[in-house]
C-alpha cells in the first residue's frame, strides 16, 4: 500500500467535519472491535478496521462498503475506548460521507421519505390497531398534524439532506 499524506489529511478533514472528532486519538488497540455487535455479526469494516483504513487515507476506496450501515449506534465502543476516540462517532462520520455521496442502499430512501411526509421514519396506518386497544385512532404525534409535518419539512429542506433529492 502506498501511503499518501495528502489523502490522509483530506480523509481526516472529511471525517472530522462529519463529526468524527476523536479519530486521531486512536492507537489501534481493538477494544472497540472486541465488543462491537456489528463485528461479531460479521461486518468487515467497523471500529478498529475502519479507523485503520481512514488513518491510512483510504476513504473513497471504501465508499461502497455497507458495513457502516450495520452499526447499531449502540456505543459499547465509546464506553470501552481508553483513548476517548468515540469510535461510533467515527463510524457515523464515515456513514455521513457515504450518505452525502448517495452511496447507500435504496431501501434507506423510504425512511427519509416517510420522515419528510409524516414526521415518522417508520409509518404504518395505526387506526385499526389503536381502536382495538381503546386509544383514539389518531396519534397526538406529527402523523396527524399538518403544522408539525410542515415544521419538520422546513428543517429538512434547509439542511444538507435537502440537496440530495431524496424527498
Amino acid at each position: 500500500m502506498i501511503i499518501d499524506q495528502n489523502k490522509i489529511d483530506e480523509t481526516i478533514k472529511i471525517i472530522k467535519a462529519n463529526g468524527g472528532h476523536g479519530i486521531q486519538k486512536c492507537v489501534q488497540c481493538g477494544a472497540c472491535s472486541a465488543i462491537c455487535p456489528g463485528v461479531k455479526a460479521g461486518f468487515p469494516l467497523l471500529c478498529r478496521a475502519l479507523i485503520k483504513d481512514l488513518l491510512n487515507g483510504l476513504l473513497e476506496e471504501n465508499i461502497e462498503n455497507s458495513s457502516s450501515w450495520g452499526c447499531q449506534a449502540c456505543n459499547r465502543c465509546t464506553e470501552v475506548c481508553p483513548q476517548g476516540v468515540r469510535p461510533q462517532e467515527v463510524v457515523f462520520a464515515f456513514r455521513r460521507y457515504q450518505a452525502n455521496e448517495l452511496a447507500f442502499s435504496t431501501s434507506a430512501v423510504t425512511s427519509q421519505m416517510n420522515l419528510y411526509e409524516t414526521g415518522h421514519a417508520v409509518f404504518t396506518d395505526p387506526k385499526e390497531a389503536r381502536r382495538k386497544v381503546g386509544l383514539p385512532e389518531e396519534t397526538p404525534t406529527s402523523a396527524f398534524n399538518e403544522a408539525a409535518q410542515q415544521e419538520i419539512r422546513t428543517l429538512m429542506d434547509n439542511s444538507p439532506m435537502g440537496e440530495l433529492g431524496l424527498f
Binding site: A73, N100, I152, M161
Partner: peptide, 25 residues
C-alpha cells in the same frame, strides 16, 4: 402528550446524513 412530536429522528435518517440536522429535528 407532546402534540406534534415526530421521529426522534431514527439513526438511519438525519443522524446518518448531518449532525446539525439530527440535532435540529
Amino acid at each position: 402528550d407532546l402534540e406534534g412530536a415526530g421521529c426522534c429522528p431514527a439513526w438511519g435518517t438525519a443522524p446518518s446524513f448531518d449532525l446539525n440536522t439530527w440535532c435540529a429535528i
